[in-house]
Design a protein around this nucleic acid. Structure first.
Lengths: 155, 155
DNA sequence: CGCATATCAGTAGGACTGAAATCA
DNA sequence: CTGATTTCAGTCGTACTGATATGC
């Protein structure tokens, strides 16, 4: 949904935190999607490469649990990343149901590149906020995430 | 996308404001969708009824501009609201391309009902924040909305 | 047996596009 | 003629579901 100027939005509507949150998420998603598309990437690429870089080789299922990406979408994204040689996908010798996914050196380089692009994106997303406000915002959003991830999202 | 516990998420990932924002938007959207579904409503119903209540009778195109809802989705939502007698849809005598949409008394009552439900939803969404933090959060999100709605989303 | 993993095909709902009909 | 409005049909990308094959 396109963002509407708050001045022309019904007051009841514009003051709903859920609406503010989803409106800004739309903006953020667009900035991220467009910014990454410029260099031929998608959100999932960053999520998966950064997870592989931090936690080391993993099965696809483990990556799904860590990132929240559906098992089914992991499959297709892995095929993309494999084709570009950003990851290697080998079948696990100790458990032959699994693939072991490993980030390659080329993948690490790619990750740096994505990092740079994302830094710029976050900057333009948060442009109107002071550094202190940005920290505040992140802190509160994290608090919300921790709370709502605590259980299966039951409250 | 399901929400993942921040503790188990790659650090690079979890600290991206865009990700925090979109993660929380998913939670918020789900709470809203489920909460409204309980009483047989959808987000668009609230957006359109509250806009009609505040600004008075409008054409469908005007409602679309005010709410950010696509012209095409306005059509189908209006049909739902009309069937439930929450709005009246008459063709405009002074400009016969247009429909004039008016909220009914029944629609006003419905709006109160939706308001009550949404109050509860916002409460459980923001549960872990103090009242001061909630205000802070809303203030910052509004600032972001104003900034990004200012132009066509060009930065 | 029950359970986990990877894969593929296909669904569901939401945002959006294109074109037609109508009219200012 | 240009441009706005309503409507319908259909597309697109994303999250997700179901089923299958394989192996623990």
């Amino acid at each position: 949904m396109p963002l509407v100027k708050p001045e022309m939005t019904a007051r009841r509507l514009v003051s709903q935190p859920s609406r503010l949150l989803t409106s800004m998420a739309v903006v953020a998603s667009r900035l991220v999607a467009e910014g990454l598309a410029e260099i031929g990437a998608r959100r999932y690429h960053y999520a998966l490469l950064s997870t592989l870089a931090e936690f080391g080789p993993s099965s696809q299922a483990a990556l799904g649990r860590r990132t929240g990406i559906d098992r089914s979408d992991i499959v297709s994204t892995m095929s993309e990343l494999e084709e570009a040689r950003f990851i290697e996908r080998l079948s696990d010798q100790s458990d032959r149901r699994r693939n072991v996914i490993t980030i390659t050196a080329k993948g690490e380089t790619r990750l740096e590149e994505l990092d740079g692009q994302l830094r710029q994106i976050q900057h333009s997303l948060l442009a109107p906020l002071t550094p202190a406000e940005r920290q505040q915002l992140v802190k509160m959003l994290l608090k919300l995430c921790v709370h709502h991830a605590g259980n299966g999202g039951s409250n």
